[in-house]
Amino acid sequence: MFIWDETLTFEQFRRRFQTEDDCVAALYRFRWPDGFRCPRCGHSQAYTIATRRLPLFECRHCRKQTSLIAGTIMEGSRTPLRLWFQAIFLHCRPEEINATQLASILGVTYKTAWLMCHKLRHAMSQRDAALLLAGKVHIVNAIHRRQFTLEWHQQEHPVLIGASVDEDGQFSYLKIKIQPKFIHHHKLKQPEIEPFLLQHVDKKAQFTVFPVSKGSDAKHKLRKMGWLAECWLARLFRGIGRKHLQVYLNHFCYMRNLPAFTRFSRLLNDCAGFPTITYPKLTGSTAAARSRRLHRNATVSSPFAS
């Protein structure tokens, strides 16, 4: 099993996972840590079909064939596993990475790198959705600002920042969630707390919601996390629009909720354990919309168009 070392360089990592076989063996262990299990019947024995780029496993009981990447974030991808492993590694480094940088390092197109980044964030978001804030919980409302200004801007969004707090007052788990935007007299109204509690906080938790007017160290610590998220988005991505903002905030929280030495294993495990998301779903495009765009482009480019 791969052991994470914060001093490990990218070149050392690439040598460790140099071939597809290296990555296949590691992904197999993460996907089936207790040995193969057929997704249809649960049988534990399978024939290996190694004539494809990635192996297929044929259940000896029901004969169902299962790809190594079926049901994972990598399902349907033609990108080599070694590049996926490199992308996971680079996302787990303290300096992290954006799609433009990833495309340059991996030698892939920007579209491929962008899709890989979003699929990794999808795995992070699925893991976040499966975990609730528990124990002692602090919650505060804040404004996510795309621009650092005192005036209201249409790209600003209300958020609720919540965290599980340990006995020493440190955050053990953090969530930052966008809330519905309501404008009243050109001001953003405070978000309702009940939906956040129902969706993100354990029913047995003891929670404290800090009012806007009351200042405290705990409240300022939570708001500082929101400010750090804004700085991270501005530095690494030059700001993010509303459409994908939540998954980027999930990304920020995911990395800060994990000790550095567990990040690679945790993210690879989540990539192996959660299903993928497709490009059309990410972009909101449909077959009909693509057909209209193609028809429009063909009409515009036609030499007979008026």
Rank of each mutant, 00 (worst) to 15 (best):
R52P: 02
P80E: 06
A205G: 11
S125Y: 12
W152Q: 13
H295N: 08
L27T: 00
E156L: 03
R235Q: 15
K111V: 10
V247F: 10
R82V: 06
P211Y: 06
Q190D: 07
C271N: 00
G162T: 03
S172Q: 04
T276I: 04
R14Q: 12
N250A: 10
H157T: 13
K177E: 10
A234T: 15
Q190W: 00
R52I: 01
R256W: 01
R127D: 11
W227K: 15
S125N: 10
R145Y: 07
K189C: 05
A287K: 09
H138M: 12
T79N: 01
M1S: 10
F274H: 09
R242S: 14
L115Y: 14
A129T: 12
G239D: 06
L258S: 01
E6Q: 09
H138N: 14
Q154W: 12
H144M: 11
S216G: 10
I69H: 01
E156F: 11
G284Y: 02
H186G: 03
A113Q: 15
H144Q: 14
A113K: 12
A46V: 01
I240V: 14
I193T: 07
D217T: 15
Q170N: 11
W114D: 12
K187Q: 10
R53V: 03
P55R: 00
T299H: 11
T19R: 07
V212Q: 15
A70R: 05
H251D: 07
S104M: 09
A289N: 06
Q199R: 12
K219G: 11
D202V: 06
R82T: 05
T51Y: 10
W152S: 13
H157W: 14
R93Q: 09
V165G: 02
A163K: 04
S164C: 02
R146N: 14
M74R: 04
S67C: 08
V108M: 04
L106K: 05
T109S: 14
C253E: 00
Y279G: 00
A113C: 13
C41S: 02
R242E: 13
A99G: 07
V24F: 01
P259W: 02
A130G: 08
Q101R: 12
